[in-house]
Design a protein around this nucleic acid. Structure first.
Lengths: 188, 188
DNA sequence: CCAAACGTTAAAAAATTTCTTAACATATTA
DNA sequence: TAATATGTTAAGAAATTTTTTAACGTTTGG
């Protein structure tokens, strides 16, 4: 009894998962993560911890693809290795707290942005200063150099703010400033 | 007098700009914007308003590339059309307030993320609920459906928080919560 | 200590994306 | 109104990225 119902239900269940996994993949695509890595993350998010072979089977892709996909997700700090008792194969688990995902993903990028750009600005401003202080350079060029110098100088405030934002997120202070809404009652 | 100095100075100045433009392009690459669009933005940021032909010449690329590049940047709300007096050609200007850039760029993505995912979750949860309430489905499958339902339910809080964050940024409240550091004195 | 399993790396193939050339539509000016 | 300038679209070419197959080293279990 209910055997055929189970078959249909299984199909529905998988379909429901697919909808959300695709949605997660599309979202990650927005931020420059490839769709397949996004699908991988989404799948692990809903299925729980998985081995490379389980991923391969689920996504219908090759094992090296899974391996490199997982590696990329690990770079973003949203997937970690785990152990499954008695199992020989390595398993991996997706960060399933999206707040933590947000934190790990964006702070890493913003930190890098601030660092890289502040460094470039320093380098560029040094060059510009040498032009500005060189008496053999025409006033027109000096003025242009000064303009560019100022544009760069002004942008520093942004990168410094970005670093502050990163800190507020890493310490969790951000959730004092912008609280997470309390959970609603379950409907089930 | 100083003519050869000017030539060298011009070269230095351009080099200084390039360093920062490259840096900006690399940063935008981090967020999934192509390097050429990033370079385009960075160039406009330092050079001021430009026509498509000026971009073409500066970047050494074709005009249609410039056209599509600008269009993409407009989608991200970081480039706008402007008018240059007496000029027939259309000019474009890059958002040169990085705080505004940040706001325009990320709130758009986060808004989309929240909308797309909340919609998918609704759709998926409807399907899952039908399984859960179907008496012909085996308890094992029901339980799995319920587990997945809960995972999805829990994630809603994140998307709601994301919408709050977007609002705080759009209204500028975020800068009350995380103030921009006061500018330092000029060194020139 | 041998054999099989596992995961990664390397090279080749496939797919996608980006860019260019060419054609087109629209608008401007003479 | 004709001729030219401007920007976009479309189709093809080029380049890059992603994926797979194959080979390799390492580990584990018999």
């Amino acid at each position: 009894m209910g055997y055929s119902s189970d078959e249909k239900a299984r199909e529905s269940l998988d379909h429901a998962k697919e909808i959300v996994v695709d949605s997660i993949a599309e979202t990650m695509d927005l931020y420059g993560v490839t769709r397949s890595a996004g699908t991988l993350y989404g799948t692990m998010y809903l299925e729980g911890d998985m081995t490379l072979d389980e991923m391969r089977e689920k996504l219908g892709m090759s094992k090296p693809s899974m391996s490199t996909g997982v590696k990329k997700l690990q770079e973003f700090n949203v997937v970690k290795k785990t152990f499954r008792k008695g199992k020989r194969k390595q398993t991996y688990v997706a960060e399933h707290d999206f707040f933590q995902f947000f934190s790990n993903f964006f702070t890493q990028k913003w930190e890098r942005e601030a660092k890289v750009n502040l460094h470039s600005i320093k380098e560029a401003q040094d060059i510009l200063l040498r032009i500005i202080q060189d008496d053999n350079v025409s006033p027109e060029l000096k003025e242009e150099a000064q303009e560019v110098w100022h544009i760069m100088e002004n942008s520093k405030a942004y990168y410094k703010w970005l670093n502050k934002l990163v800190e507020k997120i890493e310490t969790g202070e951000i959730f004092d400033l912008i609280p997470i809404d309390p959970e609603q009652e379950d409907e089930t």
